[in-house]
């Protein structure tokens, strides 16, 4: 595909081009699946970002460093960003921190951690990786133990920071419909926890959409 055709599609926000959009969504390798081809692109983008920003002086005489922590800005940044070549439509949220694009990780959490582990975390002021689990996956002593091994292995790979949401999407959808019955529902948002019902609908939708990892 020629670059000018791609740009035309993006400018059109894939209007009437659903087939081509799905080609990008479903038939291209994606970061978050322990796929070297996709993960090498991540590293290249990381290096570019780092070399452009790192060490630049700011107005107070200090220097800039890079962080990979958007807190909730990924929703805002998405709302001012046009369609992207991964099949994301204009104004939709971007991925959160170094978490894979919502729904792009299809090989489970170990593959996500492997992909994220390929980033050079030491050169940042911090990274944010968000993982969402359903409660069933972490049930009992064995569940907690497996979670701890997941975290330890990630840190062994050079990972910096990981956080977990343990809820199921059904609960979250129910909370959207009947907030008064779910006032106590706390979710990790991005670098902080908040009451789910106090979040904007866009952010609620985005938390629901984030991949649910289920055991088999």
């Amino acid at each position: 595909m020629a670059m000018k055709d791609l740009l035309k599609m993006l400018s059109a926000n894939f209007e009437g081009l659903e087939k081509q959009r799905l080609l990008f969504v479903n038939k291209t390798p994606k970061y978050g699946n322990d796929n070297d081809e996709a993960d090498d692109i991540m590293r290249w983008v990381f290096d570019e970002f780092y070399s452009v920003v790192n060490g630049r002086t700011n107005t107070k005489g200090g220097v800039y460093r890079i962080n990979m922590l958007p807190t909730t800005c990924h929703v805002y940044f998405g709302s001012v960003t046009g369609a992207s070549a991964d099949g994301r439509k204009a104004w939709m949220p971007l991925s959160e921190g170094i978490s894979p694009v919502q729904g792009a990780d299809r090989k489970g959490p170990t593959a996500v951690l492997k992909s994220a582990g390929k980033m050079d975390h030491v050169r940042t002021g911090g990274t944010l990786l968000n993982q969402k689990f359903t409660p069933q996956l972490l049930e009992g002593e064995k569940g907690i133990e497996n979670l701890s091994h997941l975290v330890r292995s990630y840190f062994t790979m050079g990972g910096h920071h990981i956080q977990f949401n343990v809820v199921n999407a059904e609960t979250l959808r129910a909370a959207q419909v009947n907030p008064e019955q779910h006032r106590d529902l706390i979710v990790r948002v991005a670098g902080y926890s908040d009451y789910f019902c106090d979040l904007s609908v866009a952010l609620q939708d985005e938390i629901i959409a984030r991949t649910e990892h289920q055991g088999f």
Partner: peptide, 12 residues
Amino acid sequence: IQRFSLHDGPGI
């Protein structure tokens, strides 16, 4: 090939 399989034996 199911990675992070927790219910088919010990560990991850």
